[in-house]
């Protein structure tokens, strides 16, 4: 039974390492957000394994906080990416485009 606990820890560590490699390599910011999300899921699993190993229910509120934190983090990063690229995109709302165009023209004329 002890071996199985060690195997669980090693599996989680290898998974977290792979996710961190993707965090370093990730071509776009959304890939990085995704790998952070996966890293959070691995840490949830690790904390859960700790709680189960020690029969210790004190870390369970931490699981609650982490499970909400991952949602807020990935959604806010996605919204940030959408807002930032919207103004440079042809498909975005024309309000942003117009505002940026006028700003650029003012910069040129002054």
């Amino acid at each position: 039974m002890n071996t199985l606990w060690i195997i669980i820890a090693v599996l989680l560590a290898v998974a977290a390492l792979m996710s961190m490699v993707r965090l370093l390599l990730g071509p776009s910011i959304l890939d990085r957000a995704l790998s952070v999300d996966a890293l959070l899921a691995f840490s949830l699993t690790g904390l859960g394994a700790y709680a189960a190993f020690n029969r210790d229910p004190t870390v369970l509120p931490t699981l609650l906080v982490l499970s909400l934190l991952g949602f807020v983090g990935s959604v806010s990063i996605a919204k940030f990416v959408a807002r930032r690229t919207e103004s440079h995109d042809d498909e975005g709302p024309s309000v942003f485009r117009l505002a940026e165009d006028t700003v650029e023209e003012e910069g040129k004329t002054s």
């Binding site: 989680l12 977290a16 691995f42």
Partner: peptide, 14 residues
């Protein structure tokens, strides 16, 4: 163990 195995699979997939 199944949960940790799924985590490893997700790491490889990532």
């Amino acid at each position: 163990l199944a949960g940790a195995l799924l985590s490893l699979i997700a790491g490889i997939g990532l």
